Simulated assay, not measured.
Amino acid sequence: MANALLIIDMQVGLYDGPQKPFERARVLDTINLLTQRARAAHAPIFVARHTGPAGSPIEAGSPFWQLWPGLEVDEARDYLFNKTRPSCFLGTDLAERLAAANVDELVIVGMKTQFCVDTTCRVAVELGFSVVLPEDGHTCMDTPALSAKAIIDHHNATLAGAFVKQVKAVDVWRSAVATAD
């Protein structure tokens, strides 16, 4: 179904900060399932870390900047990169790396739904990529205006069709799992 996985901002400071993401354990399990399926399909895995300026809680190298330890990422074979904007493309070499790997379709998962996930989905389409958004593979926190569930539901509905193919995570790389068994 797709030929690369992009995991966004699954970092200690966001995942385990003072406000916990909606259904965080389930979303982590979902992302790890997709990581396993991507490996079975021989699909490359790209992992974005949001990097704040010097002195911020998520500055490069800080404890909160690190990837969540339960995330099944292999730094030796997966491509980890840093970003400073909501888009995983702006100011990074992600588009070039995807082109070099002959990727034309991305499965996008991670945090936060209304910021980096939304922006990256929209920019990816503008750059010519097809995007698969597992409706159960991204999360965020409650805000004063909306619950995290409402934000996720809204973005799934808004992005579906015009920007992304919306699916359940269990349906991504299903054939790769069947042939690996």
Score class of each variant (00 low, 15 high):
residue 136 D to V: 03
residue 152 I to S: 09
residue 133 L to M: 10
residue 131 V to S: 12
residue 86 P to H: 15
residue 38 A to I: 02
residue 73 V to L: 02
residue 40 A to V: 12
residue 44 P to F: 02
residue 134 P to W: 06
residue 143 T to V: 07
residue 124 A to H: 00
residue 77 R to E: 10
residue 152 I to K: 07
residue 139 T to M: 03
residue 97 R to D: 05
residue 94 L to I: 00
residue 138 H to Y: 08
residue 24 R to E: 08
residue 73 V to T: 07
residue 113 T to A: 03
residue 17 G to N: 05
residue 106 L to T: 09
residue 63 P to C: 12
residue 155 H to G: 03
residue 151 I to G: 01
residue 85 R to M: 09
residue 158 T to V: 14
residue 61 G to Y: 08
residue 86 P to V: 12
residue 8 I to T: 01
residue 166 Q to E: 11
residue 161 G to Y: 03
residue 93 D to H: 07
residue 48 A to K: 03
residue 28 L to E: 06
residue 81 F to Y: 05
residue 87 S to Q: 08
residue 165 K to M: 14
residue 178 A to G: 08
residue 112 K to E: 13
residue 114 Q to I: 00
residue 161 G to R: 10
residue 145 A to M: 14
residue 162 A to D: 11
residue 18 P to V: 06
residue 97 R to V: 09
residue 76 A to C: 04
residue 167 V to I: 03
residue 74 D to H: 04
residue 114 Q to A: 10
residue 41 A to V: 02
residue 27 V to K: 02
residue 173 W to Y: 11
residue 116 C to N: 05
residue 16 D to K: 04
residue 24 R to I: 12
residue 46 F to S: 01
residue 39 R to N: 04
residue 161 G to N: 10
residue 78 D to V: 06
residue 43 A to H: 00
residue 148 A to V: 01
residue 86 P to M: 05
residue 62 S to N: 08
residue 143 T to S: 14
residue 126 E to Q: 15
residue 95 A to C: 02
residue 50 H to Y: 15
residue 178 A to Y: 07
residue 147 S to E: 05
residue 2 A to G: 03
residue 42 H to A: 14
residue 55 G to A: 04
residue 174 R to T: 15
